[in-house]
Design a protein around this nucleic acid. Structure first.
Lengths: 340, 340
DNA sequence: ATGAAAGCGCTAACAC
DNA sequence: GTGTTAGCGCTTTCAT
């Protein structure tokens, strides 16, 4: 009954009812200033004609696209895809659509992506890259839209962000190993130069050691591995370093190390303990299951998106740098789990 | 030097150079009909003013948004996120942006998503849902844009799609178990009613049995599990069914079954063999590693997106139903791997 | 409460 | 080659 061939425009609806465009626009946008009778007639016509507002035209006229850009390193990494799931769900809740771009954590690609998203007139941006280069910040400035970082830190504290306290988490894990008498604890991070790795993860590790009067032994710190295979390859090196425990920033890498070690005959957790940091499904499928820092991944994304909606509505934020709580999940890759 | 506060428009550029809008539009769009000298001046002004075309305005005027919609069940499932990675990379290659929506494989949400994407005037759509309900097809028709299915089949063969030959793959796996003398082979699929599960996966399984004169034993077929935990829970049932081998449609589920079985003391592959179907990272991290059908996931997405670009360019397709090759990866969850 | 009219920033005939 | 002129489909003052 309500089948039309060519897409009806607001003009068609107006003509059908015998009112002006403005009136139709008002009922579509839920304005109060429309007589109920008129409103009903307009609604009927909209239904009848199968009218749906053209979001592009609306975007041009209103300068709001109800679209947010999301720039992420890699959607095939469970950590990021779970963050993004949180973002997406909240975005839908607030009627925003998500324009997604993978950058492989390459700052150059991030810059291109942000510029491109800006051209599309996104209303806001969520950025998950592990670094915030000058060029990326510049691109954000040019984009001239609210930005929220998710799982990504701005050391200057200028951009709003949602994270856990990485330093505290890494310090806790290190402490725990220390209190169990571990003498040689390895640290595996993603890079040797990015703030999140150097100033937070490694800093937490170093702080714990420092508090018991020890220095970081460079031969026990590793950086660079990104995949399961990288982790497997790293296992031999870690073992050769004389480490008897390791705290590893990524679950897939941790699982690679775990399996690499075990395939080489090392007993986990008896001869070697491992703690991972993202608590994705990978930690549970491992044998032994991996102990891990738990980050509320979905929530980090969800909260970041929620902050962004506020910013897009010109609301003020109670808190710019949101730190969500993390916990420790004790499983079988650490000895203490057995004690319990 | 080229810093401006308010975004320059095409009009500003035209005024700066002393030409008309049309000329600027021509150089921006790479038209031949511009005198080189003019072109250079315009380019200089564009650079100088930091002008970037407003994609929304362009979209409204040209009726092309260079944006494609992607409707997927769940980006936290590695199978789908790898498909999407392929889509995204090819989309970027052809200068398209991706508007992503997760639907949890709920047809209702898929309908809403498609309508919404249509409102945003996407140029094309990639759909990955495991079913193609009437309403979804209707929504696609209304959207009035080219559609390509990725990892999703249209039994009527109307919509272009990219898949592997699921039936052949499942038949092969079943055959293999049969040829090894397996008597009780379980089948685990995602649903009891969707075409991809019933008419392809299960059909392949049934066909192999039929060819050796056997019927499908309903007590050996399972449907519904979606997660690792579901798989773990299912392990007991599968074992109780007397099955000694299983072919499982999803890697996480397969890993759940594997671990569930092993945790209950079942020896894999000696007492029970498992073959999974997506060959994601999960198959490699398992112990024993999971044998699996390998689907070229990234390529399925990439090819689907490539087809879509052709369709959007009004090109014709050589082939509407693309079937990409699958292979078998023999690992330690099946006995034959040991023989090799 | 409703309408008229002016854009939003761009593309696309159509002239010259 | 380049300019003029309509729109694209909508929102948004400003009147009434």
């Amino acid at each position: 009954m309500a089948e039309e061939k060519k897409n009806a425009t607001i003009y068609d609806v107006a003509a059908a009812v015998g009112v002006s465009l403005a009136t139709v626009s008002r009922v579509v946008n839920g304005s109060e200033n429309v007589r109920p009778a008129t409103r009903d007639k307009v609604r009927a016509a909209i239904e009848e004609l199968g009218y749906r507002p053209n979001a592009v035209a609306r975007g041009l006229a209103s300068k709001k696209t109800t679209t947010v850009g999301v720039v992420m390193p890699d959607m095939t990494n469970l950590f990021y895809s779970e963050l993004t799931r949180g973002i997406d769900d909240v975005a839908n809740m607030y009627q925003y659509d998500v324009l997604l771009t993978n950058t492989d954590d390459d700052p150059k690609r991030a810059v291109t992506a942000i510029r491109n998203l800006a051209d599309k007139q996104i209303d806001g941006l969520i950025y998950m890259g592990s670094q915030l280069s000058k060029q990326v910040q510049e691109a954000m400035k040019m984009a001239d839209v609210p930005v929220v970082l998710a799982g990504s830190v701005d050391q200057k504290g200028i951009l709003p962000s949602v994270n856990i306290d990485y330093q505290a988490a890494f310090e806790e894990v290190t402490n725990r190993f220390l209190s169990e008498g571990q003498e040689r604890i390895a640290l595996v991070v993603g890079s040797a130069d990015r703030p999140i790795d150097v100033d937070y993860r490694r800093a937490g590790y170093a702080l714990a050691l420092e508090k018991v009067g020890r220095d970081v032994d460079e031969s026990l710190t590793f950086s660079g591995p990104r995949s399961y295979e990288d982790g497997q390859a790293l296992a031999a090196q870690i073992h050769a370093s004389g480490a008897r425990a390791a705290i590893i920033y990524d679950d897939e890498v941790a699982l690679g190390v775990l399996n690499g070690l075990q395939d080489a005959g090392v007993k986990v957790p008896d001869d070697f303990e491992i703690v991972s940091a993202n608590n994705t499904t990978f930690t549970m499928v491992a044998r032994p299951e991996l102990s891990s820092i738990d980050q509320p991944k979905y929530d980090i994304g969800a909260v970041a998106m929620r902050l962004l909606t506020k910013l897009m509505d010109q609301d003020s934020l109670n808190q710019k740098q949101v730190i969500l709580p993390h916990t420790m999940v004790n499983r079988a890759s650490t000895k203490s789990a057995k004690r319990n």
